[in-house]
Amino acid sequence: MTVHILLTGASRGIGAAIAATLDAPGIRLATQATTGPLATDFNQPVAAPSLWQRALDALDGRIDVLINNAGVFEATPIDSSDAEWLAGWERTMRINLTAAAELSRLAVLHWQGRESGGRIVNIASRAAHRGDSPAHWHYAASKAGMVAMTKTIARAYAAQGILAFSICPGFTMTGMAEEYLASRGGDKLLADIPLGRVAMPDEVATMARFCALEAPASMTGAVLDVNGASYVR
């Protein structure tokens, strides 16, 4: 049977690499990006339910796998004004965590309604465990929330065949990471990665494909690190 997959954040970087690795026979892929038929601004409260319905329409009423990859990585320095700091916090939380939660809820209800299982793959971050820079409290908190949400879904619905996995990349060679590496002194940050380099998008995509299609059911709830041993648990 063809597997129907909804992937968010497919415009570039990790999302584009995931889309490429899922471009294969036996897979129908609906991709959310900033442009195109499934374009979505997750900063808007009604965005996630609208995307879910449009994706269902595009995939003939059935979604088997949800991959939550959409996210932002925007600095909000502690000495910003109160209003700016709060606005940055709430924007990051809504895009990185709340939208993923809304889509995950709709996915679980969809699978319960048809009495068949499904898979959720959440692209979180090393920051969920290690934290991030002083200007990125909100980013670290959003990714930690995503990991906790994944574990909760896995524990709550495994008996119904609903599986959930988190992937936690460290620095990955995307537009967001390149900018951050440059701003924080790239050589110094690279020295903190025993592998000696940042991850490549296709490495994270390989893990996402595995979780979406191949990971055994007993792996549900797993949090998989892709960070060159820069953070080990």
Results as ranks from 00 to 15, higher is better:
A55W: 05
P37K: 06
P25S: 11
S50N: 14
L56T: 07
A30Q: 07
P25H: 09
P45Y: 11
G26L: 12
R28Q: 12
L29S: 07
D41L: 06
R28G: 07
L29P: 04
W52R: 03
T40S: 03
A47C: 02
T35N: 13
Q44M: 10
A55V: 04
L56E: 08
P45I: 06
I27M: 12
T31Q: 15
L51F: 02
Q53N: 09
A24E: 15
R28D: 12
R28V: 12
T40Y: 00
R28E: 13
A33T: 11
R54P: 03
A39W: 08
T35A: 13
N43T: 13
L56D: 13
T31N: 03
G36A: 04
P37H: 04
Q32A: 15
W52P: 01
L29C: 10
L51N: 10
A47R: 05
W52E: 02
G26S: 12
L29Y: 09
Q32M: 14
R54S: 05
T40A: 06
Q53G: 01
R28A: 12
L51P: 05
A30G: 03
A48I: 08
D41M: 05
P45M: 04
V46E: 15
V46R: 15
T34H: 06
G36K: 03
A33D: 04
R54W: 03
T34K: 02
T31V: 12
L51G: 02
A30P: 07
A55H: 11
